[in-house]
């Protein structure tokens, strides 16, 4: 495991410097949206909170961090040179893999198209689609989180958002259940796109999607009550949903939340979960970019990990 306090400090410094917990260019958050020509203000507003988009960057950071973990030098190295933050601030080295970038961007596009097909035309805040601050909250950087949350809220209000549609469990949870405790007068209605689609009754052409085994993300299943919706949507799209031994509220974490702090432990947990899932079937559907990245990183050619938005959007297995 890496020195946790150093990592917390890196996150703090990065946030203060450029509003993201790990080094990544700001445009990475919204450049995917340009071709979709969504209106830049109004409601409901798609609010991604940036988690999907920064996932490829987190993956590369974790990749380089793991090397240090192996050397058992990380704490020393970090203390000596403040390696990561220096790297981060100067914007060097952290180059994500192109294929993962395009994968997550496709997911986001697919979500917008699914919403449109269901008759929900969303606005989008572009430069104001700010990072939600999830990691600040999780790491206990409460003051900084509060400050940041107020900023995010103001940005969304300035774009006339009343209802926001979120795309991942972490952002859904933080916007719906945590922001109200930190932001005075918070009045945004928050819905996950899966909830919106399930309510709208997804329209689909696909008939026989095949079997998939579902991996419930902890926050959807245990904190936000999003359990039935993804199953309903997948079934409606012609997929047969198989349940792993631990599913629904009793799901088992993918290990992702600690990938930046304890990459090895995160991998061990992901392996445990992956084998439990693949015992049921070789196609695993995820609902969260962190789950996707972490399970994918330990999978081989025998199993496929796919994001639900792509499956609902018609991707063939």
């Amino acid at each position: 495991m890496l020195d946790p306090l150093q990592i917390v400090r890196v996150v703090e410094e990065n946030m203060k410097a450029h509003g993201l917990p790990f080094p990544a260019p700001r445009e990475a958050l919204y450049s995917w949206a340009k071709p979709l020509k969504m209106p830049d203000r109004g409601s409901p507003m798609l609010y991604t909170g940036g988690l999907y988009q920064i996932t490829p960057y987190i993956m590369s950071v974790v990749d380089s961090l793991s090397k240090f973990e192996d050397l058992k030098l990380i704490s020393v190295a970090l203390k000596a040179s403040r390696l990561l933050s220096t790297l981060g601030l100067s914007g060097l080295v952290v180059r994500p893999r192109a294929d993962t970038v395009s994968y997550v961007e496709n997911i986001l596009r697919s979500i917008v198209e699914l919403l449109r097909k269901a008759g929900v035309n969303v606005a989008y805040g572009y430069e104001d689609d700010l990072y939600s601050g999830v990691l600040l909250y999780d790491l206990g950087l409460d003051e900084l989180f509060k400050e940041h949350a107020v900023k995010v809220y103001k940005a969304l209000k300035s774009r006339e958002a009343k209802t926001i549609i979120t795309v991942d469990p972490h952002t859904t949870h933080i916007m719906r259940s945590v922001y109200p405790k930190y932001v005075e007068g918070y009045d945004l209605e928050v819905k996950s796109y899966l909830e919106v689609l399930a309510e709208a009754g997804l329209k689909t052409e696909q008939q026989n999607g095949g079997d998939v085994v579902i991996h419930d993300p902890c926050l959807y299943a245990r904190f936000e009550g999003v359990i039935g919706q993804p199953r309903f949507l997948l079934q409606k799209s012609g997929f047969k949903v198989l349940e792993p031994r631990r599913s629904g509220r009793m799901t088992y974490c993918c290990g992702g939340p600690i990938e930046g702090l304890a990459p090895k432990m995160a991998k061990t947990i992901a392996k445990t979960r992956l084998s439990e899932l693949s015992e049921k079937h070789g196609v695993i559907v995820t609902l969260c970019p962190i789950c996707y990245a972490n399970l994918k990183s330990v999978s081989d050619d025998k199993v496929k990990v796919e994001d639900i938005a792509l499956l609902l959007g018609g991707r063939e297995l």
Binding site: D3, C218, R222, M250, C253, G256, A262
Partner: peptide, 14 residues
């Protein structure tokens, strides 16, 4: 520190 920061906040225990 390792103990406290390695928690996933996954909520299984709750």
């Amino acid at each position: 520190l390792k103990s406290i920061y390695s928690c996933l906040l996954c909520g299984a225990c709750n």
